[in-house]
Simulated scan of single mutants.
Amino acid sequence: MKDYDIHGESIDFMRIAFSIYSRSFMKLTILPEDPHNEDALELMNELSGVLTSITGNGGQSSFCIDDLKNDKSIFLIARDENNKPIGCGAIRPMNRQCAEIKRMYSKQPQVGTRILESLEKHAMSIGYKKIRLETRKVNEKAVRFYLRNGYYVIENYGKYVGNNLAICFEKEF
């Protein structure tokens, strides 16, 4: 596991990674991983298929895996007690103060919340003050999920300005 040098401090992500038990008592481990590995690519492909079935767009054009090649980004994979990948998520920088969540996906209940919590903890440890994301309005499950987790609706930003199908969220730390 690689360390990141943030503001002169080395952050060992293994130290801040955690294992938790979901309400079903399933052991869940969420750790940073290489977004190019087979499990990561499989999860992101599954996500694209799910998004296509819900929104008609898999979201690939809004994400470049190379955006994660810096010390202000991270890609996490959630694994069950058998080390099977069951979810993922990433943050990438928008600017020095704000990260953007990308490629959030969960195959099982409660896993998405735990991935989101872990992404937020990593974002804070890196020094971000807020976090943003975009989803499609038609993806009502995702909209409810982010509202339930303390995100609030903001004006569409970046490439989503003027896109009436998109809805953007933000959370400040």
Results as ranks from 00 to 15, higher is better:
G112S: 03
S125W: 11
K141A: 09
K159H: 13
Q108K: 14
R144D: 03
I131T: 07
T135I: 01
H122V: 08
M104F: 04
K129L: 10
L119V: 04
L116K: 06
R103K: 09
V153K: 11
R114E: 15
N164P: 01
Y105I: 04
I115S: 03
K102M: 07
M104I: 10
I126Y: 00
R114P: 13
V153L: 05
N163D: 14
I115F: 02
S106C: 12
V138I: 15
V161Q: 05
R144L: 08
M124T: 09
Y146T: 05
L147E: 15
K121L: 12
I126Q: 07
Y105T: 08
R103S: 04
Y146M: 05
L147P: 13
I115G: 06
G127V: 03
N156H: 04
I131S: 05
L165Y: 03
R148S: 13
S106W: 00
P109H: 10
V153R: 02
N139V: 01
K121V: 03
N164I: 10
Y151V: 04
S125T: 14
L165Q: 15
K130E: 15
N164Y: 02
V111T: 14
Y105G: 09
V143Y: 01
N156V: 11
S106N: 09
L133A: 07
G162Y: 01
L165I: 14
A142S: 15
I126R: 04
I154D: 04
